[in-house]
Simulated assay, not measured.
Amino acid sequence: MIQIRHADERGKANFGWLDSQHTFSFGSYYDARHMGFSALRVINDDRVAPGAGFETHGHRDMEIISYVTEGIIEHKDSEGHSQRLPAGEFQLMSAGSGIYHSEFNGSQNDELRFLQIWIRPDSTGGKPSYQQKDFGKSEGLTLIASPDGDNGSLQIKQDAELSQLVLAAHSKQSFDIKPGRNLYIHLVDGELLIRVAGQDESQKLIPGDGAMISEESGLELINGGESQVLALVFDLP
């Protein structure tokens, strides 16, 4: 079963300095039909004005991934990390028993745009941790986060994997789904066609769209346009 979460149906919040679109219920946006998917709780598409940002605030018992698509994040946290996160890089902050952090647009001139992603951990408490890495833009699937940190990926406290999908024009990628697993695909750039393996019918995603996939054994992911496809693929319990 494939269920599409269309970009223009997402929740919206605009505070002047922040323009955000919420795939799932968050802050003042609440929709009982969209409270998350499996362990995936939040995907916020945030645009932050030059020089503005999120003042110091706290989290606990959440795996928080930031992926910068435009600009640069200035990150500081209570564990002593002070980092710059440029476009293309991934950050994973395991909040554990509690962490405070701030995130600001590192430019006084240009907008910052990034995806803020929350995944529920499979255990609570523990010492907070911070990881950051640029995985490049190789074609195909690149593992970004996994429970054991396989292949140099970030280590996440959940039976989940996050992969980056890059498809050149008129190319495709097959994806096998293990029994009992769920997939969520969030399209960042391009035009992506999703087809259940062995079927003819496909569904199209445009940037900001998401696809919730369950009770399937395989997919074909197809670049249906002339420009490169960039997507995030979550393999969830």
Score class of each variant (00 low, 15 high):
85 L>I: 13
102 S>L: 09
32 A>N: 13
65 I>K: 01
32 A>F: 08
188 V>F: 02
133 K>P: 06
221 L>P: 05
88 G>L: 04
30 Y>M: 06
184 Y>K: 00
7 A>D: 13
181 R>V: 11
66 S>R: 04
174 S>D: 15
177 I>V: 15
155 Q>W: 07
224 G>D: 08
163 S>W: 05
38 S>Q: 08
31 D>F: 02
197 A>R: 15
154 L>S: 05
33 R>C: 04
100 Y>F: 14
113 R>W: 03
178 K>H: 14
237 P>G: 06
157 K>Q: 11
83 Q>S: 15
41 R>S: 10
169 A>P: 13
180 G>R: 01
133 K>Y: 05
227 S>A: 13
42 V>I: 10
78 S>A: 10
182 N>A: 12
165 L>D: 08
190 G>W: 11
173 Q>G: 10
12 K>I: 10
112 L>M: 07
236 L>V: 06
173 Q>S: 14
162 L>G: 02
92 L>S: 01
222 I>K: 13
90 F>H: 06
112 L>R: 07
82 S>T: 07
73 I>K: 02
145 A>C: 08
116 Q>E: 09
129 S>R: 12
59 H>M: 07
53 G>K: 00
169 A>E: 08
85 L>A: 01
45 D>N: 11
228 Q>P: 03
220 E>F: 05
59 H>R: 04
199 Q>V: 04
115 L>K: 09
105 N>S: 09
124 T>G: 14
30 Y>N: 12
146 S>L: 07
88 G>M: 03
196 V>G: 05
34 H>D: 12
23 T>K: 01
114 F>R: 08
113 R>L: 02
58 G>H: 08
196 V>R: 09
14 N>T: 08
16 G>E: 05
140 G>A: 11
5 R>G: 10
83 Q>M: 07
206 I>A: 14
76 K>E: 14
33 R>W: 01
131 Q>D: 04
128 P>V: 03
128 P>K: 00
4 I>E: 00
97 S>W: 05
190 G>E: 13
202 S>D: 09
163 S>V: 02
144 I>A: 04
193 L>Q: 14
114 F>C: 05
134 D>F: 11
29 Y>D: 10
127 K>E: 15
216 E>Y: 13
237 P>D: 06
97 S>A: 13
216 E>A: 10
9 E>N: 13
23 T>G: 09
75 H>A: 08
71 G>H: 05
17 W>C: 03
122 D>A: 10
108 Q>N: 15
146 S>M: 05
156 I>K: 02
234 F>G: 06
